[in-house]
């Protein structure tokens, strides 16, 4: 059974070839008809990438973005019928794509956009009531060993470049107005937090992002603070609490 082998292989080839065994009722060239399928596959997958990476596309312009995305689609077609996550390796592809090497911040910008999609569709969870957190204040020693569970939609981004500012500058009506003022070589970090139905991106200190990553990997409160670069702890906690991002905690015996 090799019909679909031929058909599938030809779908992702760049030649004008046509798999064997096709025909048209009127004797017209089946290759031109087959091209409709090849076009559907390529264009729909490029469209899916454009949906996930709108800021990356805006930075590059549509023509460059789609030409690059087309090469990615050829190299890495989806493995799952669920397209929401298609292109999760696109940032790595961008990073290794020589024609884009003049824009070294692009891969991290793309990573930020994929995290946005992940935060958007992540599982729902209820925030811990503030009173429960306040209850922890009663025992300062126990507090150091508390392990916080964070919302599944929480994501962080850290970059050597100002990708958070770039992303923010592209939201809203006049995307490019403030672009000239951004110092691209200033590293940034961000927290992605879903409140209700919206994902908010908040610029945070790099240390705060490290702290949150440590909490997510299961570190205790004190260990997470210790392993991060200096940052404003109360600010970071206020952000998490206000965003409903702390969903649970466990006390260590």
């Amino acid at each position: 059974m090799s019909d679909h082998d031929d058909f599938a292989a030809t779908l992702l080839s760049d030649t004008g070839d046509c798999p064997p065994g096709l025909r048209a009722w009127n004797g017209s060239d089946p290759a031109q008809r087959f091209a409709v399928y090849r076009n559907n596959v390529t264009v729909s997958l490029i469209d899916a990438l454009a949906d996930t990476y709108p800021v990356t596309q805006a930075m590059l312009g549509e023509e460059f973005f789609r030409a690059m995305a087309r090469l990615y689609v050829r190299a890495e077609p989806p493995r799952s019928p669920v397209l929401a996550w298609y292109g999760d390796s696109f940032p790595d592809f961008v990073q290794g794509f020589p024609p884009a090497s003049g824009l070294p911040y692009l891969a991290d910008l793309a990573r930020l956009e994929m995290r946005y999609v992940q935060a958007y569709h992540a599982a729902d969870a209820s925030a811990l009531p503030m009173a429960d957190l306040a209850g922890l204040l009663a025992d300062a020693n126990a507090l150091a060993h508390v392990r916080f569970s964070l919302h599944p939609a929480l994501e962080t981004v850290r970059s050597r470049y100002a990708v958070v500012s770039l992303w923010i500058a592209h939201q809203g009506q006049t995307p490019a107005n403030s672009l000239g003022e951004i110092n691209l070589d200033l590293g940034e970090a961000a927290l992605l937090i879903r409140q209700g139905l919206e994902v908010e991106i908040v610029r945070i200190e790099a240390g705060a992002a490290q702290f949150i990553d440590c909490l997510r990997s299961g570190a205790s409160f004190a260990d997470a603070v210790h392993s991060a670069a200096p940052f404003d702890l109360s600010n970071a906690l206020a952000l998490l609490i206000r965003g409903g991002a702390i969903t649970h905690f466990t006390l260590q015996e």
Binding site: L133, L137, A140, L143, L233, S234, N235, L237, A238, I241
Partner: peptide, 12 residues
């Protein structure tokens, strides 16, 4: 740690 959490709760 307790001071930071306390301040954060107040802000939030």
């Amino acid at each position: 740690l307790a001071l930071a959490l306390s301040a954060a709760l107040a802000v939030a």
